[in-house]
């Protein structure tokens, strides 16, 4: 086993679909994305923690967060740096728009080849799609083994990493040499919080595009003096990806139709909590053999 590891965390900025409020749907029935806050995908935070655990086990290792998304996704790279990541890469290009999981996995795998890590840690799935496909698909693209539903890195045994996995009805402990890709479950430990000193250190970290938008002399000087404040931003050309495998054209799956969910209106019989209402309901349920 190497003394230090190059660790890549795959993460995604997602709309917070768990907190869909009343204003989340527009009057015409379409999703109002603006009303949904963009958050660090929850299981990707569990993944970041496992990467930081690895860094604790192998001091001197380097944790890099890799995300694909629009410019504002750099927010989760900064968040990861506040919590312990050494840096990040934003993969951003209009050509990625409309990519399904397979095209996304291809794009990510191109960036990973350039980063050349020893291990990849990803969240099991993102809450906006809940597919859990990107981790295994990236592993396949790289020809690496995958350890899904990881809950704990138990330790090492020779050249192998020992990982505990959560299955539907139990646990499994596996051993696997590097390189490997692991996806981490929500049942794994929560991510450590932001570290005050790291927040001070990295709060001005920006991608080149962000720096361009909000350029001040102070900012520009700071970034020249402290190279760690420059968040790497890569386009399709930077990772030498094949356009034909990206975006809508590179996606085998196509969306044929989107329907907004509208409840079929049905009139519920209204009852109160009074003894007589409850008793007559129960009487009815027993009489109709719904109960008993």
């Amino acid at each position: 086993m190497k003394k230090t590891l190059k660790i890549v965390v795959l993460a995604k900025q997602v709309p917070d679909t768990r907190n869909v409020g009343k204003d989340a749907m527009k009057a015409d029935g379409t999703v109002n994305r603006a009303a949904l806050p963009a958050i660090f995908n929850p299981e990707d935070l569990n993944a970041l923690e496992q990467a930081l655990v690895l860094k604790d086990m192998f001091p001197g290792s380097e944790v890099t967060l890799l995300t694909m998304g629009p410019g504002r996704a750099a927010e989760i790279i900064r968040e990861a740096m506040f919590r312990g990541a050494d840096g990040g890469v934003l993969l951003s290009d209009r050509k990625f728009a409309g990519s399904d999981t397979l095209a996304t996995s291809y794009a990510l795998s191109r960036a990973i080849l350039k980063l050349n890590p020893d291990i990849i840690v990803a969240g099991r799935q993102a809450i906006d799609g809940d597919t859990a496909q990107v981790g295994p698909q990236v592993a396949e693209k790289l020809g690496w083994p995958q350890i899904t539903y990881a809950e704990e890195i138990v330790g090492t045994e020779g050249d192998e990493l020992i990982i505990k996995r959560r299955l539907e009805h139990g646990v499994e402990t596996v051993a696997c040499p590097l390189p490997l890709l692991m996806t981490v479950n929500a049942s794994a430990p929560d991510c450590r919080p932001r570290h005050a000193k790291r927040v001070m250190k990295y709060k001005y970290a920006k991608t080149a595009s962000e720096a361009q938008e909000a350029s001040t002399d102070y900012d520009d000087t700071l970034r020249k003096e402290r190279p760690y404040l420059n968040i790497t931003e890569w386009s399709v050309a930077d990772v030498d990806a094949d356009d034909a495998q990206l975006g809508l054209a590179g996606s085998p799956t196509k969306v044929k139709k989107i329907e907004n969910v509208v409840f079929a209106a049905k009139e519920a019989k209204r009852l109160s909590a009074s003894d007589s209402d409850i008793d007559s309901l129960m009487k009815e349920l027993i009489a109709s053999h719904t109960l008993g």
């Binding site: 999981t101 996995s105 597919t131 859990a132 295994p136 592993a139 396949e140 995958q146 899904t148």
Partner: peptide, 20 residues
């Protein structure tokens, strides 16, 4: 857990597309 681990791996290898 088995199908969601296996199917994406197969779909990636065959470049076939998969809906979860």
């Amino acid at each position: 857990p088995v199908g969601r681990d296996l199917a994406p791996r197969v779909s990636s290898a065959l470049h076939s597309g998969l809906t979860a």
